[in-house]
Design a binder for these strands. Structure first.
Length: 592
RNA sequence: GGCCCGGUAGCUCAGCUGGAUAGAGCAAUAGCCUUCUAAGCUAUGGGUCAGGGGUUCGAAUCCCUUCCGGGUCACCA
């Protein structure tokens, strides 16, 4: 039972005994005491005075006194207006440190039975990854780590949008202009290579648009009249007909893309247990739509299209299948969801997809529920905001500023530059130095993105170089390296003992309180699908440690017991930072 | 236009299931390395929590409304 629960239950009992009032635990609000007041936890008594039938101060006084008697771990309390501030005994806190230190699994919550499938990334195969994918991947990976820490078995899956008109456009441009070039022969990473042909296609289409006679005003309409666009459409038809030559080129180009993507995945440190391909699922879905038709939850329109009426749910009527029986986006997603349920029998399915698709996922979930799929209630759309530049949305035409690989290269370059400036790599081999740049650079990038609440859009300015000071990944990593330096001096194999019967100074107690919150944070960020809670927590923990580090000496503590305590606190802080950073997909260095 | 989401310090963000005097970082200014790593610590300045109304003992937080920004309303994905 958590401390909070203990305090709530004790308060409930006290209200019964002293005031004869039946209150429920959730009428008791408990906060962490604000810094400017003395105490560890605060009970807000205003909501309780109608049960005690006394003023706020008398109620708080009576409750404080009774809690102190009853629990045995409250050392003192004070009352300010309607706030009862409780200070726990040092003995209580030392016991907590002992318990946490004894538990190598601290931060790992009890196993849950609900199985989770988590889809993230979802790239198109006609162009390289950009900053939006980076946010997606960081959120997806981090969320999977957090859910695992919260006890859920998680299966990570990816979906590749590997077919359609876009990839055909790359293929057409390649066929015309590449002269058989390959990523190898041109020295260009595979996904960029294919993306370059996509760009080429659009250039040519634009030129051809200029030559059109009586071109329509609408640019999209005009584009469709260009010879090269028509060729792309023919290519798509050939692909759908299974034309061998077309399929071969398509496979070749996608293979290049996957090779390129894999390098980026490795660099970022994300992985998937299973890959899905739109080319394999796009024809599925007719069955599931028929099922809905038979059950009478979907209906056939006069033109033959099958649709679902969601007006009762505040949405619209939505087409699910074309009149010719071919799938559209939603059809595939219905089928893929069903397929995943058959494969994994999951209780929850999380989709990490940008908030542009909020409406789509509402429809998807409702349609599946109308089909009577019980498991569909476990669908959760982890909707995240777009990454924008200070002037607005990143457009692919705005150059390469939003390209994932460029972004990574840039942050690694800064990491190297900063590290060398600070002279931090004495005694490092070249390989160790490179590893450090990667750890720090990726730490900076990942933290920058993950510290923002997912559902909010975030502003990223490519003109300003990424920070390495203040609330950043490197700050937290640095704190870890400082702790590790102390632990090396203590000696790696030295058994740590946690003293009893000593008084804690404020920084020590504050640090311990922070460490003690870790599991609450894991629980909360999992429940809210929000890695930024972990990101903000670990920053606060590191900040608190740096104050501790500055204010007191660990190795030259006043006496043996103090030293034991501070070593144990340092060690546990280091472990907790490492665990929290792992939940965010970040490494933490031994030195920096 | 209908629906959805956002608006907190110059900038980037916390805080939002109502609780004390709204917090961090960056940027600015001023200090701290004969002592465990200064990617650190400390201090100062900086706010009409978009505007207005309401509910409440108490509102950045909940409700209504106006303004501003974004998304979506495809037989695209």
């Amino acid at each position: 039972m958590t401390l909070e629960q203990q305090l709530k239950q004790a308060t409930v009992a006290i209200f019964k005994e002293q005031f004869g009032a039946d209150i429920t635990p959730d009428t008791v609000t408990i906060n962490i005491t604000k810094k400017e007041h003395e105490g560890d936890y605060t009970i807000v008594v205003f909501p309780l005075i109608k049960f005690s039938k006394q003023g706020p101060e008398q109620t708080a006084e009576a409750l404080g006194n009774a809690l102190k008697e009853k629990t045995g771990f409250i050392g003192s309390y004070n009352v300010i207006k309607g706030f009862l501030n409780l200070s726990l005994t040092d003995g209580y806190w030392l016991n907590r440190l002992q318990d946490i230190s004894d538990n190598a699994q601290f931060g790992q919550l009890p196993l849950q039975t609900e199985k989770v499938v988590l889809e993230y990334c979802g790239p198109n195969t006609n162009k390289p990854l950009h900053i939006g994918h980076v946010r997606n991947m960081l959120l997806g990976f981090s969320m999977s780590e957090i859910l695992k820490a919260a006890g859920y078995p998680v299966t990570k899956v990816n979906i590749y949008n590997d077919r359609g008109i876009a990839i055909c456009q790359s293929m057409v441009a390649y066929r015309h202009f590449a002269n058989g070039a390959t990523p190898q022969s041109s020295g260009i990473k595979g996904d960029h290579f294919v993306g370059d042909w996509y760009v080429k296609f659009n250039q040519v289409a634009k030129e051809q648009m200029a030559e059109l006679q009586n071109a329509p005003e609408d640019k999209d309409e005009a584009k469709k009249l260009t010879p090269i666009f028509k060729e792309a459409q023919e290519t798509l038809l050939k692909w759908e007909a299974g034309d061998a030559e077309t399929i071969a080129l398509w496979e070749q180009m996608n293979a290049w893309v996957y090779e390129g993507f894999q390098q980026t995945f490795d660099m970022i440190g994300v992985d998937f247990q299973k890959d899905y391909y739109e080319s394999q699922t796009y024809k599925m879905g007719k069955e599931i739509v028929d099922e809905g038709l038979q059950k009478g939850v979907f209906y056939q329109r006069k033109d033959g299209a099958i649709a679902v009426d969601l007006t009762a749910d505040g949405l619209d009527e939505k087409v699910l299948l074309r009149p010719d029986g071919t799938s559209i986006y939603i059809t595939q997603d219905l089928a893929t969801a069903e397929l995943r349920h058959e494969e994994f029998n999951m209780d929850k399915m999380i989709y990490v997809v940008a908030n542009e698709q909020d409406y789509h996922f509402k429809v998807l979930k409702l349609a599946l529920q109308k089909l009577g799929k019980e498991w569909a209630k476990g669908i959760y759309h982890l909707s995240y905001g777009l990454v924008e530049s200070p002037t607005g949305r990143f457009k692919s035409r705005e150059g390469k500023t939003a390209d994932a690989d460029d972004l990574i290269a840039e942050v690694l370059r800064i990491a190297e530059e900063r590290t060398k400036e600070l002279g931090k790599i004495e005694g490092f081999t070249e390989a160790q130095a490179q590893e450090l740049y990667k750890t720090i650079g990726m730490g900076a990038l990942k933290y920058l993105i993950l510290r923002v609440n997912p559902y909010k859009k975030m502003i990223f300015n490519p003109e300003e170089s990424i920070d390495f000071q203040g609330q950043t990944g490197p700050f937290i990593q640095y704190t870890h390296a400082r702790i590790r330096a102390i632990m090396r001096k203590v000696g790696e194999n030295t058994a740590l003992t946690i003293p009893t019967g000593i008084n804690l100074v404020d920084v020590e107690r504050e640090l311990l309180k922070q460490i003690n919150e870790f599991e609450n944070v894991v629980r909360s960020s999992a429940a809210n699908y929000d890695p930024s809670e972990v990101a903000n927590y670990v920053y606060t923990l590191a900040k608190t440690y740096n104050k501790f580090y500055h204010d007191v000496s660990v190795l030259n503590a006043e006496n043996v017991k103090e030293k034991e305590l501070r070593v144990a606190l340092s060690n546990q802080t280091g472990l907790t930072i490492k665990k929290a950073m792992k939940l965010l997909g970040m490494d933490v260095p031994e030195r920096m």
